[in-house]
Amino acid sequence: MNLELHAVQARHPAAPAGASALRGLSLSLSAGEQVAVIGPSGAGKTTLLQVAAAALKPAAGTLRLDGADAWALRTAALQRLRGRLFLAPQTPPLPPRQRVVTAVLAGRLPAWSLATSLRSLFYPADTGAAHTALERFGLAEKLFSRVDRLSGGERQRVGLARALLSPATLWLVDEPLSALDPTRAVQAVTALKAMARERGATVMVTMHQVDMALAHFDRIVGLRDGRLAFDLPTAQVSREHLLQLYAEHEDELTGPAAAQPADMTPTPVVMHCR
């Protein structure tokens, strides 16, 4: 799916009136692209995903998905369009007493009839597919566990596994690695990208882990104060770009970008004893 945002201005629902999270933002993704969005806290990353998912109507500007102006569509057409989108929040909204198999199969709800959806609550429609999706994230043994028995990182991976069963062609994933250790983080982002390639899905992922974004994505979008700071191939993202992006937020930088450059090595202090 192609995504185009033009001069979008939007406010996060929890923000005070008049406070814009996105300020005249323009951005486009071609079908099948995989893009990481980085930036300091409060940059507008989550709001960007909500707008792209047609879940939050912008105050100004346009959202086009495969050429269609999303908010100019009639209600039924907009609902059908949303069925082609998958938005994964940082904290998946999983009912605590639900079985993992049911939570994962919920990814198929946009493609199911009401009767199939209700029946699957009691008799899961395709446990094999759910097992395969969980296996990609190292959670196959949790298939029939209850959600409230999972750790935070396991819940996050269950939320990602939903994408693999979704009919969506645009995946919008918010901070998918925040509760994962480094090994699980690599496994999760690798699985997500591989499955998106197999499906031909477009992917936009917001990430706090700058080093992971640089290591696993070919295109990086830098967002600061609701504005586009840069949009570059990963190979062209310099340390200077990152330092400017995270100015006054250097503690949020991770990996080599946060390291002190060689020419700034502190001068050793020579002490003379008497």
Rank of each mutant, 00 (worst) to 15 (best):
R136Q: 15
A133D: 04
L165D: 13
L170G: 05
A163M: 08
A140D: 11
L143Y: 14
P167W: 01
R162K: 14
S151L: 11
L139H: 10
A125R: 09
F144M: 10
L134Q: 00
W171P: 11
F144T: 05
L150M: 08
L165F: 11
S145R: 08
L164V: 05
Q156D: 04
R162C: 02
T132R: 12
L143I: 06
L164D: 00
R155G: 15
S166D: 11
R136V: 00
E135D: 13
T127F: 01
A129R: 11
F122P: 00
P124G: 09
R149H: 15
A161P: 06
A161V: 01
A140M: 06
T127N: 03
R149M: 09
S166Y: 12
V158E: 06
L164Q: 05
W171V: 06
W171N: 08
S166G: 09
H131C: 04
G152P: 03
R157A: 01
R155L: 14
A129E: 07
S166A: 13
T127H: 13
R146T: 08
A168V: 05
A168C: 12
F144I: 03
K142N: 11
Y123F: 11
P167L: 05
R136I: 07
A133K: 01
Y123A: 10
L172A: 05
A125H: 04
V147A: 07
L160D: 02
Y123P: 00
G128W: 09
A163N: 10
R162P: 03
S166Q: 13
T169Q: 14
L134G: 09
T169S: 13
R162E: 11
Y123K: 13
L134C: 10
A130Y: 01
L139A: 06
T127S: 14
G128H: 13
G152R: 00
A133N: 07
A129K: 08
R157Y: 11
V158H: 01
H131G: 03
V147L: 12
A163P: 11
P167A: 08
D126Q: 13
S145N: 12
R162W: 13
W171A: 02
T169L: 10
A125S: 12
D148R: 01
D126R: 12
R157N: 02
E141G: 08
D126P: 14
A130S: 08
A130Q: 00
P124C: 10
R149F: 13
R146V: 04
S120V: 05
S151E: 09
